[in-house]
Design a protein around this nucleic acid. Structure first.
Lengths: 345, 345
DNA sequence: TATTAGCACTCTCTTAGTTTGAGTGCTAAC
DNA sequence: GTTAGCACTCAAACTAAGAGAGTGCTAATA
């Protein structure tokens, strides 16, 4: 065996590696040469020789000398890239999921919460969903609704379909004139712009130009700016976290994983990684200690032809990839379709 | 010792019980007679006799014959009711928390989320907060905002200060006339009423009376009904769940506890239990297996002079009661004040 | 040359036995 | 009522031995 790294594996080695991975995923136990030679027309000794070579090039490893082999993370990666059979999801399953989104009537985050819930149910793992984030998102509509004499609800709608509202308390009476001024300012400075186009400094400049109306308008504009920021940042929704408690492999990291889940930005980066639609992150590939024994499988959804978010599953390394991957892809496509319908009107 | 149950404990027994509870809370280890006799001017044998009697009446228990004593749940209950010193929270601490709510500008659920967060930080345990629930709550205001030609956002504001909004998709163009009709219906049938006053059946009757406008109005009214229901049900907010993973005592139940947290109604019932402002639930008193090894400490907050919700902490039985209780009470009072200010205008 | 049977070897896991130490309960004396 | 003294109990930490699964290596075989 010279230069294992770039060597093309023999068919028999591939078959053995695939068997080890599949058995390991099923049982969680190291796999010995004896059970493997049943499926191949060779003796256990031959299998042992092959396994020993697969160990040398880092695809298999041994928990200890007298145990069978388990696939290394590198081995799982090779299996996924080259050996894993890819079944398509059955039409029955597809429609079962689809039907849960029919007649959907709500905001993007509700759809994504549902998607995460379904995904968690199907997979038995934790599921993550990201709300749409589009670098080109802009404010589509701004509305205000007076709730009390000095309290208004400000509502913002983004081009991504995201809707957010926030209460704002004013320093003075909010009459028709002030409302009109607010709408004019919104139309002139906010609508059609992205949240990157303004910040507190811009608001201050704007406020100065308003003269004696500044005192009245500033809280409203600050709230609007905050809203735009919030509506433009991608939120993460997690469902079924507690299911991770059931996996022994994850036990040493489960607390850290839970802590990571609070760090939306980190998770979003992980889930959105890469430019491919579907992305699988095996253990240490995440470059995050909390997930060193976890697998993250995610699939981006497209709204209006652009990838703006993703849904995914977080589980143990020995997750049932070939069953779960098509399900995640299916849901990401359904979510994309539903969200696309929402904004096109 | 005749009839232990109703016997008044001697001062020495009280002192011993208190010492056992306090030491156990601090260390988590069974407490032996040797360490206890240091604080009392008696020998360990005397302490052993006393402990043996405290065990007989069920205030102490032994993990096994040759271990020290730990307080039983009944023992902890007695300690809390009769022996625990109650310190008041320092002014510095009080103001530190108060300052985090100054200039608060938002919805009740944001305040409660902040309260839960702070409580979880202070206590190192999971914290729960209930959004205001008032059996006498009524709809104070209804608004609608068109977002697209067939999409409107309906907004509801309750007498409790709770604000909710929801998107509704209509079957036809929503012109001024339809909007006016909607506002008229809202004023006539919804505002001033509680969510118990209407349901799908009422809406159907109402729809029939609308004649050819029914098709247009029904989705709006259904959404409004759903909103009223949602805004009237008490939501629970949980923070710091993952902190429970750190407590060994809770380990066997932590998965079940996490599952329970999804059942808002159950948790709400538990947290709102009793008529006292402050409520402590020791283990099995919760009548819920998931919490049989947990303590729940909660304190109700008042809005406009009525208890409408509560904040609380969930942790192990050996939680530091005397430090945590005043903190929970403090936060519940601050939350009540902030929420009361919000609705009075 | 690739494959295989055979066998010594390694290492975990289980079970049983031992020791240690903390802490108790009881008794008899104070 | 209190205490010193002592036998007793039990968990936890070690040790030892045996079983079992699975390996690596070697020499024979096709």
């Amino acid at each position: 065996m010279i230069e294992g790294e770039i060597m093309e594996l023999s068919d028999r080695k591939k078959k053995i590696l695939a068997s080890v991975v599949e058995r390991y995923i099923q049982t969680g136990e190291p796999v010995g040469s004896k059970v493997l030679c049943e499926g191949l027309a060779v003796s256990s000794a031959t299998v042992r020789n092959e396994m020993s070579e697969l160990s040398e090039i880092g695809y298999l490893e041994q928990p200890h000398t007298s145990a069978g082999r388990i696939p290394s993370q590198k081995g799982i990666r090779f299996y996924i890239n080259n050996l894993m059979p890819m079944y398509d999801i059955s039409n029955a399953d597809r429609f079962a999921v689809q039907s849960r989104f029919d007649n959907f009537d709500g905001e993007p985050k509700d759809i994504l919460a549902d998607a995460a819930k379904i995904l968690s149910e199907i997979t038995g793992c934790a599921a993550v969903a990201l709300t749409p984030y589009d670098i080109n998102a802009f404010i589509k509509k701004v509305e205000m609704v007076p709730l009390g004499s000095r309290t208004v609800l400000i509502i913002i709608m983004m081009s991504t379909g995201v809707i957010k509202s926030k209460i704002c308390r004013c320093d003075g009476e909010l009459d028709i004139k002030n409302a009109e001024l607010f709408y004019n300012i919104a139309a002139a400075y906010f609508i059609g712009r992205s949240s990157d186009d303004f910040n507190i400094a811009v608001i201050q400049t704007l406020a100065v130009s308003l003269g004696d109306k500044a005192l009245m308008m500033t809280p409203l504009l600050v709230t609007l700016t905050e809203l735009a920021k919030e509506a433009s940042t991608c939120n993460i929704i997690i469902d079924g976290q507690s299911k991770l408690l059931g996996f022994k492999d994850l036990e040493p990291n489960v607390y850290n994983m839970f802590e990571q889940f609070k760090n939306s930005a980190n998770i979003a980066r992980l889930i959105n990684k890469g430019s491919e639609k579907t992305n699988i992150i095996i253990g240490r590939e995440s470059m995050n200690r909390a997930f060193e024994n976890a697998s993250i499988i995610c699939s981006k959804y497209a709204v209006g032809g652009r990838y703006v978010g993703a849904v995914g599953v977080i589980g143990p390394l020995r997750i049932d990839y070939s069953r779960i991957i098509p399900n995640i892809i299916n849901i990401s496509e359904i979510v994309g379709n539903v969200l696309s319908e929402l904004i096109e009107e």
